[in-house]
Amino acid sequence: MHEILKIEGLSAGYGPLRVLHEIDFSVQEGERIGLVGLNGHGKSTLMRSVMSLVGWQNGSIRFKGQEIGGARSTGAGRRTHAIVQLGVALTPQGDAIFPGMTVAQHLDCGAHSKLAWRQRAQRRDAVMDIFPPLRKLESALVGTLSGGERRMVSVGRALMTEASLYLIDEPSLGLAPKISKAVLEALFALPKAGKAMVIAEQNVALLAGRVDRMVGMHAGRLRGDVGHVALS
C-alpha cells in the first residue's frame, strides 16, 4: 500500500493561539478515515493546514511524496490553489461557498483542470447521479437552497475534478439526521481505488463501522492512531 498523505510534526495556529501540537498522521491509498473529536479540538485546523489556509504552520506535510507544508506564517491561502491542483479536495465546514452562483456554475467551479473543464457537462451529470435532488435545481441560485442541498452542492464541487485525497469537513453539521445520512451514504459509495478520504465528524455514530480507521482528535493532538501506550 502506498502513502498518499504523510504529516510529521505539524503544529499550526492563528496568531498567539496554537491549535495543533506536533501532529503525526498518515493516510494510505484506498483508505477511508474518520477524524472524530469535539468542536474546537483542531479537526478543521488540521484539514485547513493541509491546504495551507491557517494563520501559521510548522512541520512537514507530504502529499504523494511532494512537500506541501513547511514553516509559513503569512499569506494564508497563497499556496492553496496549487495544492488543490495537485489533487487535494477540501469541502469546508458549513455551507456551500458561492451563494450568488447557480448550482451548475458552482459545480463548474470545481472543474479546475483543463480536462475537467472540457468534460464539465458529463461530470456535472455524474455528480447529479450521486446527488439526485440537485438535478432539478440546476439553475437555482445556491444561496436560495436548503441546508442539505447546499451541502450536496459543496461536496459535489469537490467531486468535479479527480482528486486523490478528499478532505470532507463536518458533512453532517447543522443538517437533519436523515439528510446528513444521505450525504454520508453518497460519500461512502464513492470508489476507493487509488484515492483516500478523510471525514471530520463530531458524531461518532454516523461513521461507526463505515470507515477503515477512526482517529480521535483531542486538544490539538491525535488519539487512537498514534500513542505512547496502547489503549487496550
Binding site: G77, H81, V84, P92, I97, F98, M101, R157
Partner: peptide, 18 residues
C-alpha cells in the same frame, strides 16, 4: 465571479486569487 464572491472558496476550487 468566484473570486469576487468568496476568495477562500475560490482558492479551494484551485483558483489563484493573486
Amino acid at each position: 465571479t468566484a473570486m469576487m464572491q468568496n476568495p477562500e472558496g475560490a482558492v479551494l476550487s484551485g483558483i489563484s486569487v493573486r
